Amino acid sequence: MLLLDIVLVVGGLVLLVAGGEALVRGASTLAAKVGVSPLVIGLVVVSAATSAPELAVTVGAVLSGEPELALGNVIGSNIANILLILGLSALVLPLLIKRQIVRFDLPVMVGMSVLLVVVSLDGEIGLLDGVLLLAGLVAHAVMSIIVGRREVVDASAPVDSMPLNSRPVPLWLAALLVVAGIGLLVGGAQLLVTGAVSIATGLGVSSLIVGLTVVAVGTSLPELATSIIAVRRGERDMAVGNIVGSNIFNIGMVLGVPAIIFGQGIPVPPAAIALDLPLMLAAAIALLPIAFTGFIIARWEGGMFVALYVAYTAYLILAATQHRALEGFTDVMLWFVLPLIAITLIVVTAFEVGVHRGRRLAAREKAGGASNAPPAE
């Protein structure tokens, strides 16, 4: 069976790459044709599509009586989206972040994460909690579309001249590429998760760890494929919007809809309240200073995110196996690595804020000098 599982994993990866390519090209063309920016397509359409595997896994896990797997899938996917996928995408090419994401979408993602933590404190995500989460998602989607269409209308260049870094395709073919891309992404994710879970189970790894790591990464691979392909095709707005939007969809739809459908609610394990949910919120908050300083995620910041995700995964494995190295690993992370990262972020943020403040003052002085200059003879 091991050989079959490996074939499923490889086949799933192939489908994910093909689906990401088709989805990005089709969505980019639709964005130009219907007058919606690629950023909004990434935030709404692509994010909903790439969150489909998480929704399927969560509903199936709840029906199968595996709430830890369901919740771990969403929490782990959101952590992986920020630390692993954004990190790897930034390593490929530094990610530019538009002001709409910084001023609206990132705060919404952090707010949704806070809401999820709050509604989970009683140990259950009930019907009312699901309604609140879904309402937040709907409000964000509506506002994103309104703001995105306003930006396109206000742009000086016509919509049809938006650069896509690829040969334009007919509208019907673009729609077909989006549908085909979604199908390939969902199918590829299912194949990969099936093979990976079987391998992990054969190695004796618990279902909770599988949900937080293997299943979470597997269902996040559509976002990874879509984001990296979008970056390589020059659609960096779509790459960042896809990740931010996917995290919002994961909280609002992937947890909200099952909580509404299954009236008894989704139980939240104490371990998730103590560690995984706060870490998911911390990952979302950690993105704010990087985005607010320079509107770019540099390669070194992407490398730091990837390193943090590797450390988090290592901690989960060591904790699950009660390895002797767990205590030393925890001490190093708690007293050395995390404080060093915090100091680095504070210093970089202060430096960037100072640079931008200096540039603004210089621009004002230059403008004032130009206005006070005597008229030419």
Score class of each variant (00 low, 15 high):
residue 3 L to P: 00
residue 6 I to H: 09
residue 6 I to R: 05
residue 7 V to N: 01
residue 7 V to Q: 05
residue 7 V to D: 06
residue 7 V to C: 13
residue 11 G to I: 02
residue 17 V to L: 03
residue 20 G to R: 08
residue 20 G to W: 12
residue 21 E to W: 14
residue 23 L to T: 00
residue 29 T to D: 06
residue 33 K to E: 09
residue 37 S to R: 05
residue 37 S to E: 03
residue 42 G to K: 02
residue 45 V to M: 03
residue 46 V to P: 01
residue 46 V to E: 04
residue 51 S to D: 03
residue 55 L to V: 06
residue 58 T to I: 07
residue 58 T to N: 14
residue 59 V to E: 14
residue 63 L to N: 05
residue 63 L to M: 10
residue 65 G to P: 01
residue 66 E to G: 09
residue 67 P to L: 02
residue 78 N to D: 06
residue 80 A to T: 02
residue 81 N to P: 05
residue 81 N to A: 00
residue 82 I to T: 14
residue 89 S to C: 13
residue 91 L to I: 12
residue 95 L to Y: 02
residue 100 Q to Y: 07
residue 104 F to W: 05
residue 104 F to V: 15
residue 106 L to S: 07
residue 106 L to E: 00
residue 109 M to P: 08
residue 109 M to R: 07
residue 119 V to W: 03
residue 120 S to E: 07
residue 122 D to V: 02
residue 126 G to K: 00
residue 126 G to R: 05
residue 131 V to C: 07
residue 135 A to V: 10
residue 137 L to P: 03
residue 137 L to Y: 09
residue 141 A to V: 07
residue 148 G to K: 06
residue 150 R to W: 11
residue 152 V to T: 07
residue 153 V to Q: 10
residue 153 V to G: 04
residue 156 S to N: 08
residue 158 P to N: 09
residue 160 D to C: 01
residue 161 S to L: 14
residue 161 S to Q: 12
residue 162 M to D: 05
residue 163 P to S: 07
residue 166 S to P: 00
residue 166 S to Q: 15
residue 166 S to Y: 12
residue 167 R to C: 13
residue 168 P to A: 10
residue 169 V to Y: 13
residue 170 P to K: 04
residue 170 P to Q: 08
residue 172 W to G: 13
residue 173 L to N: 09
residue 177 L to H: 06
residue 177 L to S: 09
residue 183 G to F: 01
residue 186 V to K: 06
residue 188 G to S: 01
residue 190 Q to C: 08
residue 190 Q to M: 12
residue 192 L to M: 07
residue 193 V to I: 13
residue 196 A to P: 00
residue 197 V to Y: 01
residue 198 S to I: 00
residue 200 A to Y: 01
residue 208 L to I: 15
residue 209 I to P: 06
residue 209 I to G: 07
residue 215 V to H: 10
residue 217 V to F: 15
residue 219 T to C: 11
residue 222 P to D: 00
residue 224 L to S: 06
residue 226 T to K: 11
residue 233 R to F: 15
residue 237 D to W: 03
residue 239 A to G: 12
residue 240 V to I: 13
residue 241 G to Y: 01
residue 241 G to Q: 11
residue 241 G to F: 01
residue 241 G to R: 10
residue 244 V to I: 15
residue 246 S to T: 14
residue 248 I to A: 00
residue 249 F to W: 02
residue 250 N to K: 04
residue 250 N to P: 00
residue 251 I to P: 09
residue 251 I to T: 14
residue 262 F to M: 15
residue 263 G to L: 11
residue 266 I to D: 06
residue 269 P to V: 11
residue 272 A to R: 01
residue 274 A to P: 01
residue 275 L to Q: 11
residue 277 L to F: 07
residue 278 P to T: 00
residue 279 L to G: 03
residue 279 L to C: 08
residue 283 A to L: 03
residue 286 A to N: 11
residue 289 P to N: 03
residue 289 P to G: 05
residue 294 G to Q: 09
residue 298 A to D: 13
residue 299 R to D: 03
residue 305 F to P: 10
residue 311 A to D: 15
residue 315 Y to F: 14
residue 315 Y to T: 15
residue 316 L to F: 09
residue 319 A to T: 07
residue 322 Q to N: 13
residue 329 F to D: 10
residue 330 T to D: 09
residue 330 T to Y: 04
residue 333 M to I: 09
residue 338 L to D: 08
residue 341 I to Y: 04
residue 343 I to D: 01
residue 343 I to N: 07
residue 344 T to R: 04
residue 351 F to N: 14
residue 352 E to F: 12
residue 355 V to E: 11
residue 357 R to K: 08
residue 363 A to W: 04
residue 364 R to N: 11
residue 364 R to L: 09
